[in-house]
Amino acid sequence: MTTHAITVTVNGAQECLDVASNTTLLQMLREQLGLTGTKNGCEAGECGACTVLVNGEPVNSCMMLAVEADGQEVLTVEGLAPEGRLSPLQEAFVAHNAIQCGYCTPGMLITAHALLQGNPQPSEEEIKEALVGNLCRCTGYVRIIEAIEDVAQDGAAKGGQ
């Protein structure tokens, strides 16, 4: 099986890697770069635990090959808190107890982050629609939606994000 030399920007840093043809972006992030914040829930595109941004858009990293990320920009949950300081969205998840086991949380955060980038004041309906591809087995969705609404309102109070 062939390997491919790729250059990919992950959380702002350029990485040069050799990846096998069948390595998924999820495997590359977790196993080659040690970025284990991104989770493997179903490996079938159903649960969203593996969500990352590729060029600013959320995708399921279990459903994309690492070699397809050549030349692209990837953002993982680690990139939301680059200096180890939590982002306002992450703080809101903590404040609202929007986390129980935490397995879905990285994907939830990345999807919500992308939503707020494009639409700083989403309605409840828009938040629900954006989160269709992120399943949570324990917290329930109400607290997660409240946390996202909180940041949206904060952003609005400060005159947009």
Binding site: G48, N60, G133
Partner: peptide
């Protein structure tokens, strides 16, 4: 179709 993430691919 599916979810927002899947629709991007």
């Amino acid at each position: 179709v599916a979810s927002y993430q899947i629709r991007n691919r």
